[in-house]
Design a binder for these strands. Structure first.
Lengths: 233, 233
DNA sequence: GCTCCTAAGATTGTAGACAAAATGGTGGCC
DNA sequence: GGCCACCATTTTGTCTACAATCTTAGGAGC
């Protein structure tokens, strides 16, 4: 994930049009942080960078605006949408309800195979944290999220969550890279898995709620310590 | 993202460019039911109908696709997205969490003036149902929704709700036009107002949940009676 | 020296034309 | 008579050029 060049050199997907390719490349660049928040995205520049026409780039920007990743000011161009900590907290608050719903649905209709898979995932998460492998932990973390969404079989909720998640990856990243944070959250994740595996929808919803409330607290802590305490002797 | 969605609730701005106007006109047509679900939206036709260029229409369709009102199949055009009853129920399930959050936030920070306004709204709703004025009741209903969203001061939740609401207006309409349904739901709405006015966030969240669960039940009933019972002697 | 006006530059919005893809129908072939 | 390939039509995707709009810099007037 080093540079745009890598993407530029990657062979074009045969099935997707140039439109989709450009959209994906820009989206990746935003999510990876290559395009920083509030950075202006000038259509002509992108057009030159990807050697696509301005119309194609424009379409891509429109789509990304629909996903909430790009902000479009009429007659004044597009920029990478900046998600403040307050907004990130808002997103987490919304996720409480929606992910809670997914977890409950998943718990209500879990197959034995999936239950076992979750058991293995639980063990793997605990192990990765014990070994201090935060990258692997983050990966399993995402996998848990995605898997719960999939198994909930709830297209609307998945959609809403995908959108919200894409917007807040950067803040997620800030948290997941802290070892002491992982040691707390891993048990919250274990609790979610336990409730789901126990086929207890209410417990699953509550476990998700507790976890996300804890994430909100952690985010508040970090942001207040980042911006610095009002006065330090 | 918020700018487009907020415009959905607002009458068309005169100052906005042709782009925005065309988007608004098409959106209204879809929401009003002038363009029926699954109807194809051919760019050239719309372009002629609104005497705008195809590029403008294309932009509008892209935006509406982002709002979930239009479905775009690659190389095969756009159509009005059809929301099945199952999807409408999914949307209501998601709304439980998000509107619950809004109600709780509103309850937590309600001013005395707003509390009084809610009291008057409560009385007006009950009166309109008693008089059998379903149109007025539907209007007050929407107003309650919008007001709770506004006062919650939660941009993310408002955004998500605006999107979900726009998609399911047609199903909402089916319900709200039934007198016997109104007689039940008016007390659920009263309960929501009571909890909010009492500044009790948990009660407000629960009242919203009860109400939406009841709406889901009603929707299930209607759809099953519409499609006809499996066997009738 | 400051403010307001004007004009040039940069950037987005709109238009029309061409290219590519998918659909639907027609004819030939088995 | 049914099935497959092919071609015409329709519709979207892409491109280039032009118009409208916003921003910024420079200068005249007070």
């Amino acid at each position: 994930m080093s540079s745009t060049l890598e993407n530029a050199l990657r062979p074009a997907d045969a099935e997707a049009g140039a439109d989709q390719r450009v959209t994906d490349v820009i989206r990746d660049a935003i999510i990876r942080g290559e395009y920083v928040p509030n950075q202006r995205l000038v259509e002509a520049d992108l057009s030159a960078a990807f050697s696509a026409s301005r119309a194609t780039v424009r379409t891509a920007l429109l789509e990304l605006a629909g996903e909430g990743l790009v902000e479009r000011l009429p007659n004044r161009g597009s920029r990478v949408r900046a998600i403040s900590v307050d907004e990130a907290i808002e997103i987490l608050e919304v996720r409480i309800g929606v992910e809670g719903l997914c977890a409950a649905k998943t718990a209500a209709s879990l197959t034995d195979e999936d239950a076992e898979a979750f058991g293995r995932l639980r063990a793997a998460m605990i192990e990765s944290v014990a070994e201090g492998d935060l990258v692997e932990y983050a990966r399993l973390n995402r996998y848990l999220d995605v898997r719960v969404r999939e198994l909930s079989n709830h297209a609307t909720a998945s959609d809403v969550l995908a959108r919200l998640h894409a917007q807040s990856v950067r803040h997620q990243f800030k948290l997941s890279s802290r070892p002491q944070r992982a040691k707390v959250s891993v048990w919250e994740h274990a609790a979610i898995i336990d409730a789901v595996v126990a086929r207890d929808p209410d417990a699953a919803e509550q476990a998700v709620r507790s976890h996300l409330l804890s994430v909100i607290d952690a985010l508040r802590d970090i942001s207040s310590s980042e911006s610095g305490p009002p006065a330090a002797p």
